[in-house]
Amino acid sequence: MTTQNIPTSKAPAKAVPDSITPVPTRWVGPLRISGNAATDETHVPLATYESPLWPSVARGARISRLIDGGIRATLVDERMTRSILLEATDAQAAHVAARALDDRLEELRVLTRTTSRFAELLAVRHEIVGPLLYIRCEFATGDASGHNMATLAADALLTHLLAHIPNVSYGSISANYCTDKKATAVNGILGRGKNVTAEILIPRQTVADRLRTTAAKIAHLNVTKNLVGTLLAGGIRSANAHYANMLLAFYLATGQDAANIVEGSQGITYADDRDGDLYFSCTLPNLIVGTVGNGKGLPAVEDALARLGCRAERPIGDNARRLAALAAATVLCGELSLMAAQTNPGELMHAHTRLERLNGAPHGH
């Protein structure tokens, strides 16, 4: 066997200058929202290369303004998680360690408060696999999405547990039972981020005039496409048409960690024909958003959060709750519009072709 000598340069590598990748951003709406986290009308920013998304969300927003109360967004729960791993000699030792952990919850809560002014330990859950003890720590994190805050607190808790619980050793500061940026069942069951349901009741005539369809058609498509189709595909706690489209666009425009759309898009669309009127809801149990922290100091992000009303003087956490409600309402607008379009043969492709030509995007093959 021969080898090839590849010349290498001894000159120092040139530093690659930082650059900003432009993502087209438009404000659509306004959408009308009510509920326990936001009640008003506001435009929302969407940063995307998929130009048909703007008019699609705008159609849903127009419908929201025709409804008394618009889209009702209910924030059900909120918590950020980080899982840590301890290793014992066997399952019995891991079980003893778990019992000891449960007995120390109050001191762990006190310790958590020393790591941040805003961190609060809400709960600790654990699973044992052989000699492995997986510990899922759940925190309140104020107006931050809380990734770093939760990790900092979890690191302090891990150090404390190793010092005070015998017969265990360090496994990992992050053990994938969180679960961060991966499609799993545990987040939907136990919660990660903001759990929000956005819902709307649309009169029969508005469904016909504005969506060119019927409540019965949308409800039927939701079963056959979102529920049965997703089941056949092996979806994990998810039954929706395209939550990820709206979430990514909203996350990029508001300075969020875009990778969190992986768990964020694991939501469920529910549609019901109520004597011709359409009840339509989008439940998003894993909305991970914040109004402070990494990315929020960029001028465009600061402007977006201010225009969204998420820079106001409010109790700690309320700005992030408002942002989550607006994200869920935005998802509903786009989901409703797409589902309506897909009840009509040819409408979706016609709209994409026309709008992409209008915006100068390449099309065709």
Rank of each mutant, 00 (worst) to 15 (best):
98 A>V: 00
42 T>Y: 14
107 E>M: 06
93 A>D: 09
90 D>L: 14
43 H>Y: 07
64 S>P: 09
93 A>W: 07
58 A>C: 11
122 L>K: 08
119 A>R: 04
41 E>T: 14
92 Q>R: 10
149 M>A: 06
123 A>K: 05
109 R>Q: 08
54 W>H: 06
98 A>L: 01
77 D>H: 12
68 D>P: 12
122 L>P: 00
39 T>H: 13
80 M>E: 11
137 C>M: 14
58 A>P: 05
112 T>S: 12
108 L>A: 02
126 H>K: 00
49 Y>V: 11
148 N>F: 08
63 I>D: 03
45 P>K: 02
77 D>E: 14
112 T>F: 04
134 Y>A: 09
94 A>P: 01
107 E>A: 07
126 H>G: 00
51 S>N: 02
66 L>H: 10
52 P>N: 14
142 G>D: 10
114 T>E: 10
109 R>Y: 00
132 L>P: 01
117 R>D: 11
107 E>C: 05
39 T>V: 10
137 C>S: 10
44 V>M: 08
97 A>N: 01
42 T>L: 14
43 H>I: 06
69 G>L: 11
53 L>V: 07
135 I>A: 01
61 A>I: 15
84 I>D: 04
106 E>T: 05
64 S>A: 12
106 E>D: 09
119 A>H: 03
96 V>C: 04
63 I>C: 03
130 G>D: 07
125 R>K: 08
86 L>I: 07
93 A>T: 01
117 R>L: 09
103 D>F: 02
152 L>P: 01
40 D>W: 13
73 A>Q: 00
60 G>N: 13
39 T>E: 14
116 S>Q: 08
